[in-house]
Design a protein around this nucleic acid. Sequence first.
DNA 1: AGAATAGTGTCTGTAAGACAGTATTTG
DNA 2: CAAATACTGTCTTACAGACACTATTCT
Lengths: 234, 234
Amino acid sequence: MSTTRRARQKVTVTADLVILTIRDGELSVLLVERANDPFAGELALPGGFLRGRESLLDTARRELAEETGLDPSTFHLDQVGVYSAPDRDPRDPRVITCAYLAIAPDLPMPTAGSDARAARWSSVADALRTGLAFDHDGILRDAVDLARVEVQFTTVATAFCDAEFTIGDLRAVYEVVWGVELDKPNFHRKVTDAAGFIEPTGGKRPTPNGRPAALYRAGPADSLSPPMMRPRSS
Amino acid sequence: MSTTRRARQKVTVTADLVILTIRDGELSVLLVERANDPFAGELALPGGFLRGRESLLDTARRELAEETGLDPSTFHLDQVGVYSAPDRDPRDPRVITCAYLAIAPDLPMPTAGSDARAARWSSVADALRTGLAFDHDGILRDAVDLARVEVQFTTVATAFCDAEFTIGDLRAVYEVVWGVELDKPNFHRKVTDAAGFIEPTGGKRPTPNGRPAALYRAGPADSLSPPMMRPRSS
DNA sequence: AGAATAGTGTCTGTAAGACAGTATTTG
DNA sequence: CAAATACTGTCTTACAGACACTATTCT
């Protein structure tokens, strides 16, 4: 932290959110359609300006509550990183953003109780194919990469599920996030043996045609050791 | 990225550096003694203000060059994270910083050709015992945690070594960074089997009293799969 | 020769991956 | 009963960890 006064400048800071969920078997992200320039009419990640005496995490939590209408303390939020390229905002060369990754269950949204902007779910593949405003393509890619690593080493995969879920639900999370197929028997053994990952509730969920699946809830552990193994080709 | 103008504010942004190396068998960090308030006379991480049209990575690289007098392109730089608590700088509630981790070999410094500030190496343990200015204790802890993870999954451990190094040198890096003892034979087999991690130069380095060790250089791989296994109790 | 350090071989336990087989439901 | 889905058992292979052993240098 230099003490020279030379060339010190003030910049605008925002927090942007990558809210991921799984909808219809696809990894999906919450996007907003921009009402104003720059990039009016294009899709972008939700986000907002750092205000008052907030930390950036506070900003992210506040925006998350505004977008989803839900209690932000129920979400898992991780810092993805800072994006500070000088021309990422064409109207002001000095706007930097800090991106946060939020992982959510399949919500009954879009965004009851949100602010006026049109928010919608989009599959990550579509979003990257179509392209997003600013440098949000890169942010989204980085956030998805982070999510892939996080589900491997932590128990956040359960944050994609409802409060009660089956092992099949959890396996679907890994298959969608990693884009692979996993062996059902081995997955079952692995997650039931991982201490603190999931706990049986005692309940069962009927299946259309077959043996009902036991229900589980998230366990107390945060990290997984040994981690979930991702099939090679990382 | 909201388009409302309400409560938008400008803040001062800095990049702080956690430059780690191994000196005398201890994980060490480059610190500067602050000349001015706040925290005049205390030790802090080197850093400086975002200038002109730089990205924060540019700022970090520039500061790194100023502190070490070396070509910044030779260093490995990783973003640790953003620190934006509202009162982390007692004189201005709106100074946020982005911390970067740099990994360096044991340099012939302190800081030939650096700017006027008194820079010195300190062991990480001492730095955390004594305490640093601002929130730099927490930043240092986070950066060390990141380094511990990075050496596990990437080949950056070689960045702690000189251009040519022995397997014993590399093992010492892991032992110091992780604070553990590793089995020599197993470590040797593991790193020589890891594709692209290290390459033999053909040379040998004499030892004071014993068989000379073969010399290696860093290989082309960036990531290690399978990763280096860290003894349990993570 | 003996001490010291580098490097190899071999055994064992653990866990991942493949997959056969069993259990529990609906029609 | 057949079909479908959930779950269990077992075999194989890969690899981490322990550690005995060999190799090459110096005094």
